[in-house]
Each structure stands twice: as C-alpha cells, then as structure tokens.
Design a protein around this nucleic acid. Structure first.
Lengths: 130, 130
DNA sequence: TATAGACTCTATAGTTACTATAGGGTCAAG
DNA sequence: CTTGACCCTATAGTAACTATAGAGTCTATA
C-alpha cells in the first residue's frame, strides 16, 4: 500500500510517517516506478509499535532503542525493563508536579470568586504578583 | 542592576530574560553607555510575575494577556478567571492522561517480571506489539 | 598603559516532535 | 488530453527555551 493508505490504517499522518522514516524509526520502504513509497503488513506493524510507544510518552530515542532490541530476541530484557521503569518514574514526577499546579490554580480560582470583580481587586492577580 | 544580577536574583537564565524581552513579555530596559541592559526593582517584579505564571504552565501568549490586563486595573477580571479556569481544565486533562499512561506502564512492568528474561519472551515487548 | 578575565551584546542555530507549505511529479478516470 | 487526487523533497514554522560564535565592555592588577 501507499503512504496515504498506511496513514489511514494507522491513524498516523503522512508527514509524521515520513518524519519517523527520516529519524530512523521506520525502515526505508520499497518504491514504485513513480517513486511512491510502498508498504507491507510488516511496515504497518512497525509503525503501530512506534505509535504505541509514543502514546506512552516514550521519547523517539528510546523507541529506537526498543526497536533495536526487538531485533535481538536472545538479549536480556533488563534494559527494556529499565526503560519502562524510568519512564514510569518520569510520569510519576510529572503527575506530582501537575497536582501541585492544580492545587495552586484552584486556590486562585477561589481567591477570585471571593473578592471584587476588577483586575485591581483580583485575588488571582494578587497571587501571581507574590 | 545588570542582566547577570537580575538572572541571579530571579533564578531566570540570562538567555531566557532576553528571550522574554524579545517576545514582548518584558519591557525594553534602559541601557548603559556600553549598551548593557539596566534593570530596576520594577523590572524584577515583572520578571517574577512571568516566572510565576510559567510555573503554572501558562503559555507565553496567555501571560502576555495577563500583563496587559495588569495595566488596566478597572477592567473586569472575568477574563483572568476564564484563563485560569481553562488552564485548570488542561491540567486536569493532562493528569488524567498521565494516570492512564501510568497504569499501562505499571501493567507492563508486571508483565516483564512475571515472564522470562529475554527480549523474545518479554511481556513488555509483547504488550508494545499489541 | 597593557592585560586578563568576567561580563555583556546580537545573531544564529539547535532541541523535541511534530506540522504546514511550496513547487513539482505521478496516476487514474473522464 | 485534462483534471483532480495523491505523492515527492525541501524548507520553514510551532513552543519555550538553550547553546554557541564572534565581538564589545568593564574592572582589577601588574
């Protein structure tokens, strides 16, 4: 199939597919006589793999690592485990940050609804200035 | 004070200060004879305001809006409230996404530790391929 | 005065992961 | 043949920084 079809089937934009190819995440596909990219089922699976990883916020560089490991079935999977562990750690960190952020924003909202309704008297502005 | 001092006092890098000035978040400062930027207490406060907003993940374009409103004390603060409400909504959304992501990563970790220890037999890889 | 090191300047490019656009080629149907 | 959909590469843009290059300023010291 051509790139437009792959895009539709995978839900990944044409430009992103080309980007992934350029970044080395996807193999160079065969080409038609007109130089159109030609993809098979295997290519679709690789793209789905990459997309799945992206949905986990795994950076492209790490996805590359995973793809390389995929080609070494006998290799120990400890590095995969480490990668996921690290990713989980970062996600936890980010959740924590966002919860703190959320708390502050909620306090601000409360500050606004309890005071007057001009910028000068706005509890949000006062809070942002502190 | 000069930019290096402002950077130290505010915890904001020199380059970021210049970036904020270029993006219109900070006013053009006075200059010395040698063309060095000169900042007063007011400028420091404005920078702290911007930094505080950034710590809330508020995008620069919205911060600009807030700064403009800051100069209109009589104006209604409803737009400020809307801005914070919207920001809160996005933060909640992101928290939700990250929690879903966390769950999947945790399942993966479990899958790995319960199976063998090669890439081929790795529950994480299996999961990423699905 | 000269020098050296710290500081400052502007311009430009790079980071990450896309996303859009320009200008041109391919292909199939009418 | 024409037209419109699809495809190609190259380049630039997005957001928010961050780094680097090359040159100027300033101050303390010899």
């Amino acid at each position: 199939m051509k790139i437009g079809q792959l895009s539709k089937v995978s839900g990944c934009s044409i430009q992103t597919i080309r980007y992934y190819e350029k970044e080395g995440l996807l193999k160079l596909p065969n080409r038609s006589e007109g130089n159109f990219r030609l993809y098979d089922e295997k290519a679709l699976q690789e793209l789905e793999f990459v997309k799945h990883c992206r949905s986990l916020d795994i950076p492209l560089s790490d996805i590359k690592t995973l793809l390389e490991l995929k080609n070494k079935p006998e290799e120990s999977c400890s590095s995969i485990n480490n990668l996921i562990t690290n990713q989980l750690k970062m996600v936890n960190k980010r959740i924590k940050e966002l919860n703190a952020l959320k708390s502050e924003l909620q306090l601000m909202k409360k500050a606004c609804s309890l005071t007057g309704n001009t910028v000068e008297a706005c509890g949000i502005m006062t809070s942002l200035n502190s």
